[in-house]
Nucleic acid binder design. Structure first.
Length: 466
RNA sequence: GCCGAGGUAACAUAGCGGCUAUGUGGCGGACUGCAGAUCCGUAUACGGGAGUUCGAAUCUCCCCCUCGGCUCCA
């Protein structure tokens, strides 16, 4: 099966072929380190975590880089406001990011470069751009000269004339062209600054991503990801400056994820309509949140609301239930082939085919739902075979490797609690036999209060801790 | 204005030329003393209009609406 990806650069679904053999270099824009991450950041992190996992599952050797930008307006405002050094702010929110994403099951990147730790390389890159005539200095500031670029708008598919300059931000009169963007900014009072040939100041917003991605992945690499709002100007500018720097194509596949919305607006810090990962995880299980994020194709926006997350939890519960049933199923002693293996194979194929089609986790999950029904039916029927049970579990393990949405451990229950529960169940069974249902229900409620859920089945009473 | 992504049953999502989809929720059954879980069955769709085709959610054109971007942003 070949992997196909929707490339923003070409607008096409393309077969994924890395630049050099088995190696894949992948860079994703992380966060600005001035505050706790919100659900929009969670969507991005989980999206690219799953994309990275799937590329690895295809057998590629991925070097995954996620950056932290700690020199930009918000970070600077914050460090001034709090009166603490920039490094301290950076460190704090990098720590929080790792905590939040760790809880969401996001596998750590191989490298997490930080903008302020790459000042030397950034200044060198800017100097090179000036030397090559791709950038110019004015009043201690340095601007990238967009008119020197022949292929303007490669990624966003816009022509120079299409732009509405100053749509939101006033045009700086020092720029030769309103579309020129700043590579180096002179400091303002109280701001953190670094020495440079042009002024004491700091880099502009885009240059650090070019410098850091190329430092760790080479001048050309395979995958660059981020949210759709970064296509222009951020990624477009990255391409222009990187290619001006190296004369080589910067990135082969550009992948952009849809945004997290609240109602009809995107979730963002500036709109104030955000939910932090911390507050959402205080209310919902991390696996539920992950499932919620993966239950829509990554290109599409997701509307964040409690009903949707709650429903995601119910839906995931259905799958987990099926997995739990399998984990607790006692196979027959015989190692017979009862034909269920074919169903497992079919489901696994369906899952992989969906993931190969531009990481369609939603479609992949639909295959798991179909499979879960098959499994439930199978387990309720004749005695399942050990071999089939094992192959079902193998499928779930594989899907978990891809999506990380399941729990495999049987809940450990300590013996005294188990004995208490068993005794109560016994008592309830006697009450039921005597048709004393009031008492039976009373015992069931009591167990429920202890966190024990009973299920009366044809195989006897089952119970589990929730 | 320009670029991009969308509009699928009650809701949320897949599908993207013929197989009527997945989850939650309805409704009706099975199993239950009841509940839950599970299984079986069932109803309600493809923004609007033209066109191509034996056949269109799916392709083409036009229109309407929503969201994102056009130098804060995942």
């Amino acid at each position: 099966m070949v992997l196909r990806v929707q490339n923003t650069m070409t607008g096409q679904l393309e077969e994924f072929v890395p630049l050099s053999g088995n190696k894949v270099g992948m860079y994703v824009c992380g966060i600005n380190t001035y505050d706790d991450s919100h659900m929009g950041h969670a969507k991005a992190a989980v999206t690219f975590d799953v994309i990275r996992r799937h590329i690895e599952r295809k057998g590629y050797d991925v070097t995954y880089v996620v950056n932290f930008t700690d020199i930009e307006d918000h970070c600077i405002e914050r460090t001034i406001e709090l009166g603490i050094p920039l490094e301290q702010l950076t460190e704090k929110y990098i720590g929080e990011y790792h905590k939040d994403m760790g809880r969401l099951g996001v596998r750590p990147a191989d490298i997490y470069p930080v903008a302020s730790h790459h000042m030397k390389e950034i200044i060198e890159a800017i100097q090179t751009l000036i030397d090559r005539g791709s950038a110019y200095e004015a009043d201690g500031e340095v601007y990238f000269d967009v008119d020197k670029v022949t292929e303007f708008g490669k990624l966003s598919h816009m022509k120079r004339g299409d732009m509405k300059a100053g749509a939101r931000i006033d045009v700086d009169e020092r720029k030769r062209n309103p579309l020129d963007f700043v590579l180096w900014k002179a400091k303002k009072p109280d701001e953190p600054f670094w020495d440079s040939p042009w002024s004491e100041g700091r880099p502009g917003w885009h240059i650090e991503c070019s410098v850091m991605s190329m430092k760790y992945l080479g001048e050309s690499f395979d995958v660059h990801g981020g949210g759709t709002e970064l296509i222009f100007p951020h990624h477009e500018n990255e391409i222009m400056q990187s290619e001006a720097l190296t004369g080589k194509p910067f990135v082969k596949y550009w992948l952009h994820g849809g945004l997290m919305n609240v109602g009809d607006e995107k979730m963002s810090k500036s709109l104030g309509n955000f939910f932090t990962i911390k507050e959402v995880l205080a209310e919902y299980d991390p696996l539920t949140v992950r499932f919620f994020l993966l239950n829509t194709h990554y290109k599409k926006p997701i509307d964040f609301n409690r009903q949707a997350v709650t429903e995601a939890g119910q839906a995931l519960g259905r799958l987990q239930n099926s997995l739990d049933n399998t984990l607790h199923a006692t196979g027959t002693a015989s190692d017979i082939e009862d034909g269920f293996g074919a169903k497992v194979l079919e489901a696994r194929k369906g899952f992989d085919a969906a993931m190969d089609e531009d990481f369609n986790s939603r479609d992949a999950i639909a295959h798991i739902f179909d499979f879960a029904r098959e499994v439930n039916r199978y387990l309720e029927g004749q005695q399942p075979s050990k071999k089939s049970i094992e192959s079902i579990l193998e499928a779930f393990r594989e899907w978990d490797d891809a999506l990380s949405i399941f729990k495999f451990e049987k809940t450990e229950v300590d013996e005294s609690l188990a004995a208490t529960v068993e005794a109560l169940i016994e008592e309830r069974q006697m009450a039921r036999a005597a048709k004393d249902f009031a008492k039976a229900d009373e015992i069931r409620d009591k167990l429920k209060a202890m966190g024990v859920i009973l299920e009366d089945t044809s195989d006897g009473v089952k119970w589990k801790i929730v």
